[in-house]
Amino acid sequence: MTQSYLDLRERTQARDRSLREKVMSLEEACEYINNGDHVALGGSTASRTSMAMLWALIRAKKRELSFSRSIVSTEGDLIFASGIGNHILTSWFSQGIIWGVSRVMRHYTENKLARFEEWSHMSIGLRYRAGAMGVPFMPMRSMMGSDVAGRLDNLKEMECPFTGEKIMLVPALNPDVALIHVQRCDSFGNAQLDGLTFMDIDIAMAANRVILTTERIISNDQIRRSPDQTKIPFFAVDAVVEVPYGSAPHECFGLYEPLFSHMDYYAELTRKDPAAGVNEYLEKFYYGPENWTEYLELIGLGDLLDAARRGRSIYDD
């Protein structure tokens, strides 16, 4: 992940950065992810999770992926349980505070079947930021003195060469691939994000490849009418997949809130016997359906409509 600067530049230079069409299917986009890759996930907790792309990776039976994300919710459970990856770097890992500590995360980490590498929230943000800036590290003033830092071997304390203060250095993180779900983009990958952007822009600029899933594809003319709203430029993007409700059961700002009854159902299903529960979930919602539309049908129209009504309500007042 931390790679030499010239190698990083070379990988970027080698990408086709021309203004070109890159719309494809979920299955085709899977080809952009190799076994063993480090994959950064956009969004945070139950917001703008690239769920459809993860769904496709799990169905494609990818292996030995490692992941990073600002905060991990149910998608982390599914990564561990499906076997596509057994290492997640994040600051917080559970479905969400109202559902309690994730039983699935506990099962996999306490039995040493998988690794949850814990960094502070800001340190993850600054690692992506350093990656996006093309510098090897960022200095910061948290993490010092804590056991969180004590368990990590790839950070360093140093004396500031200017002031003599103690400072913590965290290394750049340049993911092999970033998966980011957005409200809209054009067929070239110019992405416009509404609401909270989380760490997505740094992730996109740090990564060596970017796969966008999008609620809808708009024309390049529309992008050019409001270029100030474009947050990720086309030349950083390698694949565009149009997937309505591509973050379900998580939320997508302004379009749908989390599908609460489905999230409650998942929490209940995994409470008693986490391993069996999460596998039952994968069988039903991941391996069962023929395509994403069937996945949404299984979740149910009622839940989707309810989430959409709540999601769009922020524009009502």
Binding site: S44, S47, M122, Y128, R129, S142, L196, D202, E257, I314
Partner: peptide, 26 residues
């Protein structure tokens, strides 16, 4: 349900990235 959903943004003055809001502490 967490501090990352749209419900957190109602009637807000400004939305920034996670890294930017944490840097306000620093």
């Amino acid at each position: 349900p967490t501090t990352n959903e749209q419900r957190c943004t109602r009637k807000a003055n400004m939305l920034v990235s996670i890294t930017e809001v944490l840097l306000l502490l620093q």
